[in-house]
Design a protein around this nucleic acid. Sequence first.
DNA 1: GGTGCGATCGCCT
DNA 2: GGCGATCGCACCG
Length: 290
Amino acid sequence: MPTRKRKLLCAAPAAQRSEALPKQPRQRTRPKEADRAGPQDPEELRSQYFPDQHENEARLSSNFFNQPCVDLAKAFLGKVLVRRHTDGTELRGRVVETEAYLGGDDKASHSAGGKRTERNVAMFMKPGTIYVYPIYGIYLCMNVSSQGEGAAVLLRSLEPLRGQDVMRGLRAAKRREGAKTLKDRELCNGPSKLCQALAIQRCFDRRDLATDADVWLEEDSKTSGTAEVVSAPRVGIDSHGEWATKPLRFYLQGNPCVSVVNREAESKLQVTDRANQAKTRGQFETFLMF
DNA sequence: GGTGCGATCGCCT
DNA sequence: GGCGATCGCACCG
C-alpha cells in the first residue's frame, strides 16, 4: 500500500504543530533555492540585488487584505496568485472562485463561535495570513484571513496562467500511474487541486501572503474582461443548516476553471442583469412584460 | 455530462 | 470514535 507516501505531502508538519501558540506570522526569508548558482531568468537576477518585494509593483500589500471577509472574497477574483516553486519556476494562476467564512455566527466556519484551536489560529491572525489545513486525511485547503475575528477566504479555483506543465507534474505525482493527462482547466479547479498544483504545503500555514518570499498575490497585468461575479451557496457544508444556503461563494461567470457551476444562481444573475440593463435604458416596463 | 461511492487520517469532542 | 470547506474513478445515459 502506498499510503505512507502521503506523509510526504509536507516536509515539516510535525515541527509546525510543536510551535507555541499563538504565533506571529513568519518573517520573510530568502528561500534556499535562491542561493543556487547561475539564475538564468532576468527577474531572478534582479531579485538578487533587491531581495525584498520592492521590485514587484504588482504585488498586493497588507492593505489589500485588510477588508471585510465578503469584500475580500470578491476582491480576490481576477487577482493572480503566484508561487515561486522550489525549482525556481514561477507558477501563476488567476483566482476565479472563492468562499467567505465569517467566523462568529457562521456555523460552517472552523472558527464558528470564536473557537480558536492550534489548527485554525491563522484565521485569527492579521489579514493576509495564510491558513492551510488538511482535510479528508489526504488533501489540503488554503485560506487567507481577512478583517473580522476568525474570518477567512477560501481559495477554491484558479485559471492557470504560467507553469502549467510543472502544475501537471505536481498533480500527477498525487494520482495513480496511467491516469489520463489533465487539461489546463482541470489543474486548479478545486481547493485541494489548487494546493497540489502550486505545491502549497502544510508548512505555509500562518505565513503572510503580503510579505512571503515563496507565495504572493498580484494585480492582474492584463484586463481580464468584465466577467460577472456569481454569488452562490458554498460547497460541501450541507450539514450546517441555514448557513449552508447563504450565498458566500463567489466565482467568475463562464470561466471554465470554476469547480462547481450553479445554474440557479446564474439565472438569477441574468434576470438582475437584464433588469439593470432595461432600467438604464429607461425601459423597465418593457422588461417586466417578458 | 452527471451521479454515487470509497479512500484516508488529523482534529475535535 | 466520528466526522470532514475533497477528489478520482466507475458507471450510466
